[in-house]
Design a protein around this nucleic acid. Structure first.
Length: 155
DNA sequence: GCCAACGTTGGC
DNA sequence: GCCAACGTTGGC
């Protein structure tokens, strides 16, 4: 059984269209311990809601799959990278990433306000006030509800 | 662009 | 170990 996750990305930096074009991509640049820990808990085959943040509208735009388990994020010791962290080295990596694989882009986005206003999703982490996590777990029932029931409504 | 709600850093 | 100052996220 796969586990389920949600991963946020700013579409200006990396969008679901970028992933569709590439098909596979490392998820680099995560510099938050909680988010890193969630990535380290991921297994190959886990499913991911691809979420667009800091744009209009924000929301879930499609589905991806974890194609490679967590491994050191080499951008963390690349001085030319915007994600460079002097405290991370190849000998002692501080940050990790997974690879993800494109599954599908949805024809319409399921917006944050739609998710927030749905009583079925009242306990979802994403809709909690003040939550800034860029990577978070999704329960199986949330996954099923969003990807079938909500998805069906907006088609 | 604003700012609330975080997370991190570092002095003590 | 506390906590003030600072930096970041991300919705609006």
């Amino acid at each position: 059984m796969p586990n389920y996750w949600l991963m946020k990305s700013e579409p200006d930096a990396f969008s679901i269209d970028d992933l569709e074009q590439l098909q596979h991509s490392p998820w680099d640049g995560v510099r938050n311990y909680q988010a890193r820990n969630f990535m380290q808990a991921m297994n190959e085959g886990d499913l991911v809601f691809f979420y667009h943040s800091s744009c209009v509208p924000t929301g879930i735009t499609g589905v991806a799959k974890v194609s490679k388990k967590a491994y050191p994020d080499y951008t963390s010791w690349d001085k030319s990278s915007r994600y460079f962290d002097p405290k991370s080295t190849p000998e002692s990596p501080r940050w990790y990433m997974v690879d993800i694989e494109f599954i599908e882009k949805w024809s319409s986005i399921i917006t944050l306000s739609e998710l927030k206003n749905d009583p079925e999703l009242a306990t979802m982490l994403l809709t909690k006030k003040g939550n800034r996590l860029s990577i978070m777990p999704v329960t199986e029932s949330e996954w099923t509800y969003i990807s079938t029931t909500l998805r069906g409504k907006t088609k």
